[in-house]
Amino acid sequence: MSSSSQEPQLPVIAVVGPTGSGKSDLGVNLALALNGEVINADALQFYRGMDIGTAKITVEERKGVPHHLLDTMDVTQEASVADFQKDCRAAILDIHSRGKRAILVGGSGLYVRAALDVLEFPGTDPKLRKQLEEECESKGLAPLRARLEELDPVSAARLGDARRVIRALEVHGLTGRPFSSFMPQREYFQPALQIGLEVDREQLRERLALRVHGMVDAGLREEVRGLDAIGLRRGKTASRALGYAQFLRVLDGGMSADAAVEETIVATRQFARRQLTWFRGDPRITWIDWQDPELVPKAVQAVNAASPASA
């Protein structure tokens, strides 16, 4: 309708923060308070059957709130940020067109940025990539890195591993533009509000350890065994997920269950630290204490303050 383009746009709401901080619950409670629907922005929760190890919100915990982009992929498929951006923006448009609030929930920083920020993806060229991979295999990484330093010194200084150097050269070959020119700016694609959950790091460390033990008690090993039977190892993204990679080694006899639990706890804590660093770097986030008894009312207040007054 023509009049809708004149109406002020409601901001997309994003609930962000480290793993284990309570994002899923806040997302549901905000949706209930604001007549909203949730869009998943956790890259591993796209996968069907990866439920226990990703702490995927259960149907009961969703309290009747529709959730989008959950369980959309098989474990053999590879998640793509570009595909997510397209699907997520389509979901936002659909939710807003029905007069509801779109609430993005997840800790995958790049996926959140792809949904909210002006960020373009340069596409791929499988033939060119294969050529670069073969060159890397036969001559080593050094000549490719030297070429990248000449073409795109910013990316060369930033990228270390072969896969990313190859990707930067592929993008340059494909577009004629340096890979660094595609880096996201902190500029929203449409009005948005990010609510971050402020955590006590020591308490989070403890919570994450308990959470991993709880996942094992809930049947993580059996979940991994079932997914292994349908191709988990073939999935580049899914097979490397925290807990899943470790318990695949348990199934192979290469690691004890106790060692897998300890390794998963350490890796999960490291991941949470990286998430905190990522989100802390974004000055646009409104932070609220994860244990504040007024968490939901304060989050609703922040949303209302950021929303245009209805005429």
Rank of each mutant, 00 (worst) to 15 (best):
G20T: 04
A299W: 04
E294Y: 05
R129L: 11
A299H: 00
V154Y: 05
G173F: 06
I95T: 00
T277L: 10
L110D: 11
S138Y: 08
A156S: 14
R211I: 00
R145W: 03
L141T: 02
E37G: 03
G281T: 10
L193D: 01
G106I: 06
C136T: 10
Q246L: 05
Q77R: 13
P8R: 06
V81K: 00
S80K: 07
E263I: 07
E120G: 07
E187F: 03
R164E: 12
A209V: 07
F84G: 00
P122Y: 02
Q194S: 15
L210G: 15
D25F: 04
D83Y: 05
L104P: 01
W290Y: 12
L128V: 14
V266I: 15
Y111E: 04
D42Q: 09
L197D: 01
T19H: 07
L141S: 07
A238E: 05
L69F: 09
F247D: 00
R211H: 14
L141H: 03
Q194G: 10
N40D: 13
E198H: 04
R101I: 09
A260I: 02
G99W: 09
G53N: 06
L276G: 08
A272S: 14
S180Q: 10
A157Q: 15
L141W: 00
I230N: 02
S97G: 14
L119D: 02
L141G: 02
Q9A: 15
E170N: 13
V38I: 15
R167P: 02
D74C: 06
L69R: 02
L251G: 10
Q246F: 02
R158F: 11
P122V: 12
D25R: 12
D74V: 09
I52Y: 05
L26E: 01
V224S: 06
V15C: 04
L10E: 06
V81A: 15
Q190H: 04
V112E: 03
G231E: 07
D51W: 02
T72E: 08
R89D: 09
P191K: 08
G176F: 11
D161L: 13
E263S: 14
G253L: 10
S2Y: 11
L34H: 10
I92N: 02
R186M: 11
A229N: 08
V16W: 01
K86C: 09
R201K: 15
A311L: 14
G109Y: 03
K86M: 11
G243N: 06
N35T: 12
K130T: 14
S239A: 15
Q194L: 15
V303M: 08
P191A: 10
K130G: 14
C88L: 05
L174H: 13
F179Q: 01
A157H: 12
D71N: 15
E262V: 12
L276C: 11
A306N: 07
S138R: 15
T237I: 11
D289A: 15
V266D: 13
E294T: 08
A309I: 14
Q190V: 04
A257R: 12
